[in-house]
């Protein structure tokens, strides 16, 4: 009988604990209206995070390797930069992403060959 009473006690304790957690979770996920200062702070975070270069070639390569090449999105390279310091305007440059810079590389090769090269043997 003691064991049965113990389990009944634990059963109701667990139920009440779950109800408490659900109630607490509902409080956390309720919408929060931010003030102007906090909004400015969040905007600074977005601006810092957004700036940069992005490319989806690794995703395309992965999907192709997984035999899902036809569903892969088209290749896209994006460069996002800030238009003006302190503003929320960004310049967006989109291109296909395959950079082949043969002429500069060849020019560098010729300029390097004029100098003494290290021996690799």
């Amino acid at each position: 009988m003691m064991h049965r009473g113990y389990f009944v006690f634990m059963f109701f304790s667990i139920i009440s604990l779950n109800l408490t957690q659900i109630k607490a979770a509902s409080k956390v996920t309720s919408p929060v209206i931010l003030g102007v200062a906090e909004s400015n702070l969040q905007l600074v975070k977005i601006s810092t995070l957004l700036i940069g270069e992005y490319d989806n070639e690794p995703q395309r390569y992965y999907l192709t390797g997984m035999k899902r090449g036809p569903s892969a999105p088209p290749r896209l390279h994006v460069n996002i930069s800030l238009l003006k310091e302190g503003s929320s305007n960004f310049a967006l440059e989109e291109r296909e992403g395959n950079e082949h810079i043969a002429p500069p590389a060849l020019a560098r090769l010729r300029s390097v060959q004029r100098r003494q090269l290290p021996r690799f043997s």
């Binding site: 270069e53 992005y54 490319d55 989806n56 070639e57 690794p58 395309r60 390569y61 992403g97 395959n98 950079e99 082949h100 810079i101 043969a102 590389a105 060849l106 560098r108 090769l109 390097v112 060959q113 090269l117």
Partner: peptide, 16 residues
């Protein structure tokens, strides 16, 4: 030798 090749790490390529 090919030096000073700037490429990015998300599928960036350079042709030599």
């Amino acid at each position: 030798m090919f030096m000073g090749l700037k490429i990015h790490d998300r599928g960036g390529t350079v042709e030599l």
